[in-house]
Nucleic acid binder design. Structure first.
Length: 313
DNA sequence: CATCCGTGGTA
DNA sequence: TTACCAAGGAT
């Protein structure tokens, strides 16, 4: 049974895998780490162009570590959650200064890096170093929930039972490095969840293991809970995002009064800075919220005070 | 452990 | 148009 699943999914992956640059056998561990962090909560299609820019500009961790953190944030562009750029810069600094510029090649070593949690540590250990590691991301959790547990969606929070299941399903290490059975299984299940066993309207007709699926066998029961949406309108995140857009557009400190100005961004005039300021003002944040958001950005290290203005760090 | 942290495409 | 959701992590 398990053997059949392994063979079917791994063979499907060999035929159907998307040709992504970080899956190239020549891709460096650093390139794989960058891709994994960028892919945290961000779709592949938006990551692709930014990842290529990063690899061209910073081919090694030391290249990124040599620049101010703000450059990482600027080059992050609109991928979202810019603190990830900050942590990637911090990770590059640790790698350059404490690991001789070479990535740790164990899960535990990777886990100690800023911005690297359980998922990313396992993913890099597996995909960059060929280690046997149970990769558990949202795609894999969903495939396991349906295929094995017969449920429409995984629970809101990762459970110990899910970790156990992922470990049980993981093939033994066969010493084949990046081409090992466990690596291909991890990649295959993740890909299946990403392109076939999707959260909304799964493409069961295209699924290689539809006949083995416990969820289908159970008559596709609906989710037992309702996912709670992420608040956005009127949130601090919305304002922080608008402020960060201004800072990314500016190469010198933006005077503080411009952030409050409800009227014309006179000093900015035309151009991307003025446009970003206009978008911020359009949100109409009250002064208290705006101040709190800016203070939060500074506290997070995403923004810095300089010459009476605000800049990227 | 629940909450916070960006952004844009899609149903 | 609104709401969901995408290779999570830190606190």
């Amino acid at each position: 049974m398990l053997e059949g699943l392994h063979t079917t999914i791994v063979e499907w992956f060999a035929d159907e895998a998307r040709n992504l640059p970080w899956r190239d056998p020549e891709c460096s561990p650093w390139g794989i780490l960058v891709s994994e962090v960028m892919l945290q909560q961000t779709p592949v299609v938006r990551v692709l162009p930014v990842w290529r820019e990063w690899m061209e500009r910073w081919p090694q961790p030391a290249d990124l570590a040599a620049e101010p953190a703000g450059e990482a944030v600027r080059a992050w562009g609109r991928l979202g959650y810019p603190r990830r750029a900050l942590r990637l810069h911090a990770a590059a600094t640790v790698i350059a200064h404490e690991h001789g510029g070479v990535l740790p090649d164990t899960e535990a070593g990777l886990l100690s890096l800023p911005g690297v949690g359980g998922y990313t540590a396992a993913a890099v250990a597996a995909f960059a170093f060929g280690r046997r590691a149970a990769v558990v991301d949202t795609n894999i959790r969903r495939v396991h929930a349906r295929l094995v547990r017969g449920e429409a969606l995984p629970s809101p929070a990762l459970t110990a039972a899910e970790r156990r299941l992922a470990e049980e399903l993981l093939p033994d290490d066969d010493g084949a490095g990046r081409l090992s059975a466990s690596v291909r299984w991890n990649a295959g299940v993740m890909e299946l969840g990403a392109v076939v066993c999707t959260a909304r309207s799964p493409k069961c007709a295209a699924c290689p293991v539809a006949r083995d699926c416990a969820w289908r066998a159970a008559g596709e029961p609906p989710p037992s809970y309702v996912p709670k949406g992420q608040a956005w309108h009127g949130s601090d995140r919305q304002v922080r995002g608008a402020v960060m857009a201004v800072l990314r557009a500016a190469s010198r400190p933006v005077p503080r009064p411009l952030f409050d100005a409800p009227a014309l961004p006179a000093a900015g005039g035309e151009g991307p800075i003025a446009a970003a300021l206009t978008r911020l003002h359009a949100l109409g944040p009250d002064p208290e919220r705006l101040e709190r958001c800016i203070a939060g950005l500074v506290a997070d290290g995403l923004a810095a005070e300089r010459d009476g203005g605000l800049v990227l760090p």
